[in-house]
Design a protein around this nucleic acid. Structure first.
Length: 498
RNA sequence: GGCGGCAUACCCAAGUGGCAAGGGAGCGGUCUGCAAAACCGUUAUUCACCGGUUCAAGUCCGGUUGCCGCCUCCA
């Protein structure tokens, strides 16, 4: 069965049929670049990154566009606070955005347009709306007249009457209807300006995405994504502008990701429970964050707290632990020239699980990107694989056993890779993980190694009292020891173990 | 007030009418000098509650309760 996606527009799961067979035109609302990104942005970025990866995996030729809103009230305000200009602020936070996204392992979209590079397109659309009598100039501003667009409210599921009854819209003397929204706003002194037929000014927020979407993906495209909060008014207004201007459906499938809560509270600056990606990644590995985010369905809210994050950390360590064991205990040149029959004889269940993973994984993902179920399949394979390894005690694997283990691990890594994790060498992962966590212990790597050396000598001398004392001393600092045939390893306990 | 969503074990969580995935935590065991890690076993006769449809309901329909989001910038 093919891909099915939940479409916010129809409020139901639909079979995904792209406009043009084999091709997908995909647009995701990018950020307004006036501050550092927080973990809510991280969730959205990870979710749409996985959707992008998976569409590519299915063989679609995907054109993926994600914009930057680089002119906006908030950017201007920030520039004034910092005593600089809007361009400096925008460029600075675009650079910061890339640093954060790269750290999270987010693939770059094919197109990353800046709003300010597309003002002529926006002006053309606005002119068209005015010519059709759907937009009007009022003072130095231009507004979209919502009552002239019959479908207004179809995405968010409200009618104009209901919205007006909500009575939380400000009455503006310039507007014919309080719900009319600005397409072009005249500039105030000192603000950045662009020339337009209505005088100097700058575009409204909503028209940016309509312009960049149609310029790169066409008047109708396949998928438009964003956070749930964008459904109204941003995406509702995009539909109104684009469909009123071009007379064709704007987007076939609307996908919206759910929010991140912090300890069951809405994340907000006033509550002070804001986590910035770059700060968070000083404590938690990016792949743990990915596992955490993808362990829940993308449309559900997720609760971000120490315990939930620690679970994800343990999960990612579990996967890499198995990969490390395989690397240590099977020859890298394990010959792949084995018949399936020979491998199956080694471990029927492991062989079957590995062989069935692609189909199981795709069945999960095809059901509206059920990453949580897909991850469940990955864990099942990991556990069976680890169990297979443990059957040999601590011995090296040879022959068909080694090939089977390597092959199962390769499948695991390939499919985890579609979710953007298990992308590292296991040794690199554990090294990164130790370095990340060391900061919280107040110890340096050299100091830990010193302790381990002393303990090693004590153990050789069979002085277990001293060895255990040293281990306890490290444990007190949340440094945990594991003795393995390859030597003593150490790691820093998660925050919940501390 | 209007619109929408959610409720599954100690916790997180999947579940598109047909024996309740997966992870964490706990308990018992194997391994270990002892641990840790890992593995094995175990932990929901039941899915907020009440009705209904059906041979069959966590899943569909109606109602009740509780929680959450949006309606204003917001991923």
């Amino acid at each position: 069965m093919g891909l099915r996606v939940y479409n916010t527009l129809s409020k139901s799961k639909e079979e995904f049929i792209p406009l043009e067979p084999g091709k997908v035109r995909f647009y995701v609302c990018g950020i307004t670049v006036y501050d550092y990104c927080h973990i809510g942005h991280a969730r959205s970025a990870i979710v749409f990154d996985v959707i992008y990866r998976y569409l590519c995996h299915l063989g679609y030729q995907v054109t993926y566009a994600r914009n930057f809103t680089d002119i906006d009230d908030k950017i201007i305000r920030r520039a004034n606070e910092l005593g600089t200009d809007y361009r400096t602020v925008a460029d600075r936070f675009i650079a910061a955005f890339y640093e954060d996204m790269d750290a999270l392992g987010i693939l770059r979209p094919d197109l990353e347009p800046l709003a300010t590079d597309h003002i002529p397109t926006m002006i053309r659309i606005i002119e068209r709306l005015i010519a059709k009598g759907i937009a009007y100039q009022s003072g130095t501003d231009v507004y979209f007249e919502v009552e002239r667009f019959p479908g207004y409210g179809k995405l968010s599921g409200r009618s104009l009457d209901e919205m007006l009854a909500g009575a939380r819209v400000e009455v503006d003397v310039n507007k014919r209807n309080p719900l009319d929204f600005v397409l072009w706003k005249g500039s105030k002194p000192g603000e950045p300006v662009w020339d337009s037929p209505w005088g100097p000014g700058r575009p409204g927020w909503h028209i940016e995405c309509s312009a960049m979407g149609c310029e790169y993906l066409g008047e109708t495209f396949d998928i438009h994504g964003g956070g749930k909060d964008l459904i109204f008014p941003h995406h509702e207004n995009e539909i109104a502008q684009s469909e009123a201007a071009f007379g064709v459906p704007f987007v076939r499938y609307w996908l919206h990701n759910g929010f991140v809560n912090i300890n069951n509270q809405k994340m907000s600056k006033s509550l002070g429970n804001f986590f910035i990606i770059r700060d968070f990644l000083k404590q938690v590995h990016p792949e743990a964050l990915r596992l955490f985010v993808l362990s829940k369905h993308y449309r559900s809210p997720v609760d971000f707290n120490d315990e939930n994050v620690a679970e994800a950390e343990k999960g990612i360590e579990r996967f890499y632990g198995t990969l490390a064991a395989i690397q240590a205990r099977t020859p890298a040149d394990a010959t792949p020239k084995m018949t399936d029959q020979a491998l199956r004889q080694q471990d029927e269940e492991l062989f079957s699980l590995a062989a069935a993973l692609p189909e199981a994984f795709e069945a999960a993902m095809n059901n509206d990107f059920n990453t949580a179920l897909a991850i469940g399949h990955l864990f099942s394979l990991q556990r069976r694989l680890q169990r297979f390894l443990d059957q040999f005690g601590q011995k090296q694997l040879k022959g068909a056993g080694a090939v089977l283990a390597r092959r199962a691990a390769a499948v695991l890594v390939e499919y985890a890779g579609l979710l953007g994790f298990l992308t590292r060498n296991p040794e690199s992962f554990f090294d990164e993980q130790r370095k990340l966590k060391l900061g919280s212990t107040g110890m340096t790597e050299a100091e830990v190694e010193g302790f381990l050396e002393l303990r090693h000598r004590a153990r050789l001398a069979k002085d277990f009292t001293e060895a255990d004392r040293l281990r306890k001393e490290l444990e007190a600092r949340n440094i945990l020891i594991e003795d393995t045939p390859q030597g003593t390893r150490w790691r820093v306990g998660s925050r919940s173990e501390a």
